[in-house]
Amino acid sequence: MTETLYGISAEVNGTVRAGQVVARTSLVDWLREHLHLTGTHVGCEHGVCGACSVMFDGEPVRSCLMYAVQANGHRVTTVEGLQRPDGQLSVLQDSFCETHALQCGYCTPGMLIAAQALLDANPRPTEHEIREAISGNLCRCTGYQQIVEAIALAAQRMGEDAT
């Protein structure tokens, strides 16, 4: 049994990355195993835990539920692409450190993607909106409290920066 290889090319964290994959390769496997972007994690491979979340053309998606070939010609941002261009932590990343919004760090990349997507769409979320936005991302360590605090803090800081 030989599987056909398909050529794909996508903009990943601002750089065009090309590769050859078999049709059944998931997007998360391509990112992790082929591009060695291991910041994106795998928790369930059935679309529930959110650990594999990445930005796809600016929208959060579950990369375990997508095929790598679907990314052909699209723009993907992973946790490795969230820092500022100068390499400093983003406001959101720094806020996660400030409130200790993580323990084992396993859900963190997906949480950051979900939170970033929220703040992009809604710069001043209420606590309930924050909880709703991350409710598709499971964390077993934190009980979510310090994550909610971090996102609220990031929103506040970004608001201050904007004024």
């Binding site: 992790r32 972007l37 291991t38 910041g39 994106t40 994690h41 795998v42 992973t78 946790v79 490795e80 969230l82 820092q83 932590l89 990343q93 996660f96 450190c97 200790h100 919004a101 993580l102 084992c104 760090g105 396993y106 963190t108 990349p109 950051l112």
Partner: peptide
């Protein structure tokens, strides 16, 4: 925390 928020943790599957 800083290494985890930048995706630089190193887990066994990595």
């Amino acid at each position: 925390d800083p290494r985890f928020v930048t995706g630089r943790g190193r887990y066994a599957a990595d």
